[in-house]
Amino acid sequence: MRIALIEPDLQHAKLVDRLVFAGGHVCQHFTTSSTFLQHAKDEFFDLLITESWAGDHCAEDVIPRARSILPGLPVMMMIRAPRESQIVAALHAGADDCVSKPVRGPEMLARIEALQRRAGLRRPANRRRDTISGYSFDAAGFAVSFRDLTVVLTPKEFRLALLLFNNLARPVSRAHILETVWLRRRDVKSRTIDTHASRVRSKLQLRPELGYSLVPVYGYGYQLDAVPLEGIAGAG
C-alpha cells in the first residue's frame, strides 16, 4: 500500500516511515499539505496519514481538498495527547481514524490494516501504478517502466529502487536500507547492499547523462539525485 504522510516534525516522520516500511508499505513524506496536494494530482495514494496541523493548514481543511483529488481516500489523523473533543471534531471533519502522537508501532499497523480492509483499495483504472519522477513502479510484477522501456527487477531490487525514488535528493542510510529491503536482518553484508545498488543503477539506467545519479554517501549509505539535462548539454 502507498501511504502519504503529512508531518512537519521530521523526527516523528522518520519514526512513522520506519513503522510503515516494517509493515510492508511505502511511505512518501510531505512537510506541508500543499506539497502533498500537488503530488496527489499525478500520483495515487491508498491512505493519507496527517498531523492535526498539516504544516500550512489544519487537517480538517486538508481532508476535503484531498478527497476532491482522490475520491474516497482513507485518512488517519495523528493528534498529540488528544482530548475527546479533538477526536470527535476530527471524525466529524472526515477522518476515518485517529491515533495518538507519538505513534505506537503495533497499534498503528493494525489500524492501517483495518483501514485497508475497509477501503478495499479500489484504484482508478488509470492509476494502477505508482509513478515517481518519470519512473512507473508496478509492485505486482516488480516491474519498472521508463522512457518506453520496462524492466523486471528482483523483489529486493524493486524495494531498494522504490526506497531511493521516494527519497529523491535525500541520503538513505544503510541501516534504513536494511530495515526496508532486508527487513532488519543483521547478517546482510555491506557489499550485498552495494551489489544491489549497482544492479539498480544499471537496470534503471541511473546515469547523469540520462538525468539521474545514484552515488554512495561515504560512511552513510546511498543518494539518488535528478541531474538537469540542460546543465549537462551546456557543459558539453
Rank of each mutant, 00 (worst) to 15 (best):
R118C: 10
R118W: 12
A119D: 06
A119Y: 08
G120E: 07
R128M: 15
R129I: 11
D130T: 08
D130L: 06
T131A: 11
I132F: 09
S136N: 02
F137P: 00
A139D: 09
A143H: 03
A143L: 00
F146C: 04
R147K: 10
T150W: 05
V151F: 01
V151R: 07
V152G: 07
L153W: 08
T154F: 14
K156R: 15
E157H: 14
E157G: 14
F158L: 08
F158Q: 04
R159K: 15
R159I: 01
L162R: 14
F165A: 08
N166R: 13
L168F: 09
A169P: 00
A169Y: 07
R170M: 11
S173N: 03
A175V: 13
A175D: 11
H176K: 04
H176R: 03
H176V: 07
H176Y: 03
I177D: 09
T180L: 01
W182D: 06
W182G: 08
L183M: 13
L183D: 13
R184G: 01
R184V: 02
R186K: 07
R191A: 11
R191K: 08
R191I: 12
T192K: 10
I193R: 01
A197P: 07
V200F: 06
R201G: 08
S202V: 01
S202H: 06
L204Y: 02
L204W: 00
Q205G: 02
Q205K: 13
E209P: 05
S213M: 06
S213I: 03
L214N: 04
V217N: 00
V217I: 15
Y218H: 12
Y218D: 10
G219R: 08
G219Y: 08
Y220A: 14
G221F: 09
G221C: 10
Y222N: 01
Q223H: 06
L224W: 03
A226Q: 07
A226W: 00
P228I: 05
L229R: 12
G231A: 05
A233T: 09
G236R: 13
G236E: 07
